[in-house]
Amino acid sequence: MLEIKGLTVDFRVEGRMVRAVDGVSLSIAKGQVMGLVGESGSGKSQVLYALMGLLAENGRAGGQALFQGQDLLTMAPRALDLLRGKRIAMIFQDPMTALNPYQRVGDQLAEVLFHLPKAQAWERAVAMLERVKIPDAAARARRYPHEFSGGMRQRVMIAMALLAEPDLLLADEPTTALDVTIQAQILDLLGELAAETQTAILIVTHDLGVVARLCDRVTVLYGGRVMEEAGAEALFEAPRHPYSQGLLAATPRMEAPLAPRMTTIPGTPRAGAASLPGCPFAPRCALVTDRCRKETPQLIEGIACREVTR
């Protein structure tokens, strides 16, 4: 249903083009949940913005992103507007700033269905608020965002995204800004509703816990490039790429409460790594060779590392 081929995102910074995302390819089938995992600065959110045509003014996307056969990247803005909000919806990272502070919550929801009569759109908005378990939804729809808690606002965002029953939902770190206790509730709600409506999800996160809870498949991003692509269970059981291994080792696990020590990956991601040749992970990799620094490894059978597939 969604097929991304060789997606690139460049930003013009002080007259130079800096590559943030380099040749990302992935595909999602109907009803599937794909996790896009990586550290901050790995370009993962920019992938979503590129798909939605929401890149910052100085950004430009290249490659192909076929949604039900249409290329999202070359589409006219008007044609894209026919898909956005209806067939493809998005949930943003920070529910505190992603809602319009000057408008009633119900109006903001109903606006998604602006082609319907106002009363009918409002009715469906309230029904959707009930489905995301907002108590006393009819009254709360008349309230403004600042009168909601963070968790409640993210429920509102989810309701807004699912209101038009989209085929694809893009979620940009939907739980990062929330309390840990709220995070699980929101994720479960998201999974539940998506399953009901057969909506496919592309969820961006740096939190492997989120992946474990929600995703069918995972794409691991580093320095704007895909390192590994695998089924969620397979990745957790046997991560293949050195970066994936490091990522998993650095995540605390419930099953092993007395695990010796949490490990960390030495070093920090290099800035603008996607602009340079070589494997972006090379400076931090234990298996690094001279070739890794010079030649960019290709993604073959779900992994971009010669040292592992050799």
């Binding site: 894209l80 943003f92 807004m160």
Partner: peptide, 16 residues
């Protein structure tokens, strides 16, 4: 502002 991005994501057109 971030909420403008939310609004654009609704596909309501630039004028709206």
């Amino acid at each position: 502002e971030p909420h403008i991005r939310t609004a654009r994501a609704k596909g309501i057109g630039p004028w709206r």
